[in-house]
Simulated assay, not measured.
Amino acid sequence: MHIGERIGAYRKRKRIPQETLAGLVGRSRSWLSQVERGIRGVDRLSTINNLAAALQVKPADLVGHDWKYAPNGSPEVAAVAAIRAHLASYGHLLARPSESPPWPLPQLRAATVEVHRSYQAAKYGATARVLPDLLRAADGYDGFAGQSSREIHLARCMAYAAASKLLTKMGESELAWITADRASHAAMAADSDVARGLAAYQIACALHRAEQSDEAEYVAVGAAEHLLPLAASDEPDLVSLAGSNLLLASVIAAQRADRSLATERLTRAEQLSQLLAQDANRAWTAFGPTNVQIHRASVAAELGDPRAVIQEATMVDADRLPKGLHSRRVQVHLDLAWAQTQAHNDTEAVFHLHLVNRQAPEVTRYNTIARETLRELLRRARRTTPALNTLATSAGVLA
């Protein structure tokens, strides 16, 4: 049985009308009818959770296999174990001597810049390999109270923020939360609003990946509200961080099927992007008019509206983004692949996934939606094509 058949079976067993169940999850009766008949897929984690709650079953009962592998399972990255080991060592707390002397501050700062660039270029494996040494070097300064203490705390915040980004992407939500929390402590020690905004965003991302959406929304909205009065000074870093937190909050609202609130937050973010008047990457946010437009397509996808995804995505000019932002550039193609899959335009869906894989192959492997879209295309294909097989193998969906 596919997921739609399971949903229909549980609904009928509990004698819940289609219209009632659809209303409980913020969808239309026609949408639910198409899901139950296998015409549409359900690839959003939030939608599966909402359906399971309404039917009073476990998400795994609807998915049909162990929940840890669907749909948010990610392949393991070997270097994550080294990051985990460092986080669990607590050498500074136990007064153990450092394994190596701290890096000079200029070297530490330069390394944090490079690791953020590597992550945004979607080089996740390379980023993971660098992070254990970077975090050890950053923690070598733990408790430092010298003349350069503020700059050191800022560098530690940026190092742990980069670690949280990668761990969130890898599905390691608990480790992502720990590293984001350490970034927040460094931000407070540095007494920097920019660092606070960056740490808050990473905490919200980690909570969101851990399926604690209410808490994530609270943090993201709170951070945006705190930064908005400060952003009135047109400080580009603060503007970018306020806007980024609003964009994350808009996605969370869309996952809750709150279209009006998601739209309102997108509008506020767009107004902030107009203050910058250009696409930038201040505070490693990639925030600007183009990123807002990309999020409009993503919000439409979260709302389950493939037509709106296609309409919004066609208005995006990804070439306007700063160089190196490969993960942001391919997001449009990920959303279009999902939309075309929902419309059963499988050839077009494979085409967009091919563009993702060509520009940022590690996104294909580690992005939840890319992997689940490929599974859906494989499941209903009468015969697989070399292009689909190659993509699925690259993503680790096929051995």
Score class of each variant (00 low, 15 high):
S192I: 01
V332I: 09
K14M: 12
L94M: 10
A121S: 13
R382H: 00
E376T: 15
A223E: 15
Y119F: 15
S213G: 04
R182E: 05
S327L: 07
D279W: 01
L198Y: 10
A161K: 10
Q359M: 15
Y90N: 12
Q107N: 08
E376M: 10
V25G: 11
S100T: 11
A53V: 12
L276C: 02
R29I: 03
A162P: 10
A262T: 13
P106E: 08
L388S: 10
L135E: 06
A159M: 08
V251G: 00
V251E: 04
W31Y: 12
T314R: 14
A370E: 11
A189T: 04
Y366W: 15
A257Q: 14
V239T: 08
A223N: 05
W284C: 09
Q274I: 03
Q293D: 13
W284Q: 15
R44C: 09
R282V: 14
H153A: 15
M315H: 10
A262R: 07
R117V: 13
R320F: 02
Y124K: 02
D234E: 05
S240I: 08
E99H: 04
T384W: 00
A176F: 01
W284V: 13
V316N: 05
T364D: 01
N50H: 11
P306K: 09
G222D: 05
E225R: 06
C157H: 03
S149E: 07
S164L: 03
E362D: 04
A78P: 06
E264K: 15
N245S: 15
Q340N: 15
E211Q: 12
F287K: 14
L275I: 08
E114D: 11
S98G: 13
I252A: 01
G197L: 13
L246D: 05
N49L: 13
L134E: 11
A308F: 00
Q56N: 13
G125A: 04
Q342N: 07
E264N: 15
V25C: 11
G143W: 00
P17G: 07
K323F: 02
L378V: 07
G26T: 10
S148D: 13
G396V: 07
Q311L: 04
H65Y: 09
H2W: 08
Q34V: 00
